[in-house]
């Protein structure tokens, strides 16, 4: 499913002293099949944006009570908001939002805090029972087994255990399984690797790639970690002050080191090293993944040695 947003604006608690403008006209298109990254400073609107994708937050015109405002004379109408996920028009209140939510899976930050059921099986099956009540017991069992297996857990061993007795990493996997069990076409994750140790982070990112290959067509993830972005994404969007500043491949994106720093953002380690090497007169043209960077550096030294 292709995601298309134009002029997307959003205000928390409008017309109150707490009103905050979280999104101020977001333009962003995410194609089907992408492994898309979203970066931004705290409060840049990235979480607000991703919550729109499965209508946890709705544009005003999609609310049940919405009535179009009458314009006074001489007033220009506000720009038309466009928000489409596949064939679902998220600005239309007639859209079946429940069905949309089964197509767009959302994994929140620290998803392990949403576990609640007596055992892992029940917890993972929760989404299925809500979205597809017509499924038979066997079908549910098979779907839960598939979901737990793909996140790297042993179904037979774990299904009857209490989710609260598991380790942190296992809990997070169970929580992710609980979201992907409905086979969403788009999977959105908010800081999926937050609070994990380096190995755990690596495993989660590997899991996301596996899901991207076999399970969900599009993966979108929000991250603070620039290394994660440069290693994994096909493209990434930079949010700042409620707008999208850049959308590009990590390779092109991290060449704008100065601009990113101005927005209070970091660059990956490989980009920092590239900059340091450039100061020494050594130009390395990599795509900023660690693998490619290392190869290019090695190649450079081999060539130099040969010249000597």
């Amino acid at each position: 499913m292709r995601i298309q947003a134009e002029n997307l604006t959003f205000t928390y608690s409008p017309s109150s002293p707490f009103a905050t403008y979280a999104l101020k006209g977001v333009f962003l298109t995410i194609e089907e099949g992408e492994f898309f990254g979203i970066i931004g400073h705290t409060g840049s609107g990235k979480s607000t944006f991703v919550q729109h994708l499965n209508a946890l937050l709705k544009v005003p015109s999609a609310e049940k009570k919405y009535k179009p405002k009458k314009l006074k004379k001489g007033e220009t109408p506000p720009p038309q908001i466009v928000l489409k996920v596949g064939d679902y028009d998220l600005t239309d209140k007639k859209t079946d939002f429940k069905e949309l939510r089964s197509k767009v899976g959302m994994v929140f930050q620290y998803p392990e805090y949403q576990l609640f059921a007596e055992n892992v099986f029940e917890d993972v099956a929760f989404g299925l029972k809500n979205f597809r009540p017509e499924m038979t017991k066997e079908e549910v069992e098979r779907a839960v087994e598939d979901a737990l297996t793909i996140v790297g857990l042993d179904y037979a061993e774990i299904k009857d255990r209490s989710p609260f007795d598991l380790s942190g990493g296992q809990k997070r996997r169970v929580a992710i399984a609980g979201v992907i069990v409905t086979k969403p076409e788009v999977l959105v994750l908010d800081e999926p690797a937050a609070g994990l140790d380096p190995l755990g982070k690596k495993e989660i990112m590997e899991l996301l790639h596996k899901l991207h290959r076999e399970w969900c067509k599009t993966v979108i993830f929000v991250s603070h970690d620039m290394d994660e972005i440069s290693e994994n994404c096909t493209r990434a969007a930079v949010f700042s002050e409620g707008q999208v500043k850049f959308v590009d491949t990590p390779k092109n994106l991290f060449q704008r080191e100065d601009e990113l720093r101005q927005l209070g953002l970091d660059v990956p380690l490989t980009a920092k090293l590239t900059a340091l090497l450039r100061e020494k007169g050594i130009v390395i043209d990599s795509d900023y993944t660690q693998r490619d960077f290392c190869e290019k550096v090695l190649q450079y030294y081999r060539e130099r040695e040969e010249q000597v």
Binding site: M106, F108, F126, G127, N130
Partner: peptide, 13 residues
């Protein structure tokens, strides 16, 4: 609110 959103995303009504 956060937990509610998470469960809503899993189809809770």
């Amino acid at each position: 609110e956060r937990i509610m959103n998470a469960q809503k995303a899993r189809g809770a009504d």
